[in-house]
Nucleic acid binder design. Structure first.
Lengths: 221, 221
DNA sequence: GTCTATACTTGGATAGAC
DNA sequence: GTCTATCCAAGTATAGAC
């Protein structure tokens, strides 16, 4: 075999592999888009393939089943989100920062549909225990992000006396998911901003009462 | 026609009408059961009719479409819940009562699957704007219950300074919906009790700080 | 890797007998 | 009002050509 032929064959194989990887990505992005706009019930192989601009059979070639593709989409969203918000979190040093950071995160979530994807998959998990197991595995980054935010924003003494960081993180995720579902009924009335402000005031208040010592020595007003 | 015949015929007509009404109820209860256990995506005419112990065609005879039946199920759940929890609410006079009442309501919700039905319908509403409109109409009682609880439990001054009663009610409903969805991934780890306790402590704390005057003159400890 | 074609299944909805 | 039978649309998944 000539060297040129080998190179040619290698390049072709690479390009083919690249195309495959790219198709996988397009399918995942298509799944995310369809979960957002049509919900779990509307996330069929045909709908997703349509959104991805490719053939329906490729869903099964690349992922084996529709369910696997949807789980892959949720996993992708979860990881992307955790990676994107790490820097924002590191800047949190107290209740005020928490509100600003949460606003920023919420804006980004709304735009990219992160929470909508999670909410739809959580609802869909009700139909199948195996799917529930897979969704549970994907959800860890969400708790991780929430827990880190809470711990950086709220003095340890407050967390100890009111509720643990795990419970607080759980509540934050639950609140975001619930508000996403409610807000879609009436997109005009998103109450998230008002709530975040109130949460910030509460956290500051609790910090003052329980004892000033906390992760924010520079002090809230 | 003999009188006996007329009576017989009336009774028959009544019985027939009764049977129809009873079937409607059984279908609604079947829809509630299926929404709980199989989710929105699994709530098909055949599945619901199976749970109701009757024929699939009756779904369309009585409700015209599967979607209409599911909406009727949500409406029923919403009204039942509001009616059942009115008395519990009237007994609330402060943060401590709120926690006790909320615990009771949550226990009842868990048992009857009220919140699960709402969550699944909210998720399903994403697929169809018309369905979203119908779900939005069904949801008013939920906000009503939450708002009444909040107003009876938290001093007006606190609500004024932190966040309005409407926002608080919105947050409560969102929190319940989100926690329902999360809890199904790992039924063992229901954090609701811990959260309710923390909320109660927060409400009491806020009441103390903002000013003792409130709907609970008999006084928290 | 991607497409077309197709087998198979399930679900929504209606017609007509009882 | 309820059931059986049936039509039709849509979905999952696979086989095979390119």
């Amino acid at each position: 075999m000539l060297k040129a032929d080998a190179q040619q064959s290698d390049r072709t194989a690479d390009r083919t592999a690249d195309r495959g990887a790219e198709t996988r990505e397009r399918l995942i992005d298509g799944a995310i888009a369809v979960l957002r706009t049509e919900g779990f019930a509307g996330a069929t192989a045909r709908a997703v393939a349509g959104a991805a601009g490719c053939n329906q059979a490729l869903v099964f070639y690349h992922f084996g089943s529709v369910q696997n593709l949807l789980v892959a989409a949720l996993a992708t969203v979860s990881e992307r989100r955790a990676a994107a918000f790490g820097p924002v979190l590191d800047a949190i040093a107290g209740p005020d920062d928490l509100v600003a950071a949460a606003s920023e995160v919420h804006r980004a979530d709304l735009e990219s549909g992160n929470v909508a994807v999670l909410a739809e998959m959580l609802a869909g998990a009700g139909s199948d225990p195996e799917l529930a197991r897979q969704v549970a595995a994907c959800i860890r980054p969400w708790f991780g992000v929430a827990r880190a935010s809470v711990e950086r924003a709220i003095p340890g003494a407050v967390l100890d006396s009111l509720l643990g960081a795990d419970e607080a993180a759980y509540a934050v995720v639950a609140l975001f998911v619930g508000m996403e579902l409610l807000s879609r009924l009436d997109p005009g009335a998103d109450r998230t901003e008002a709530l975040l402000g109130a949460l910030g005031r509460l956290a500051r208040l609790a910090g003052l009462v329980v004892g000033g010592a906390g992760p924010s020595p520079a002090g809230a007003s």
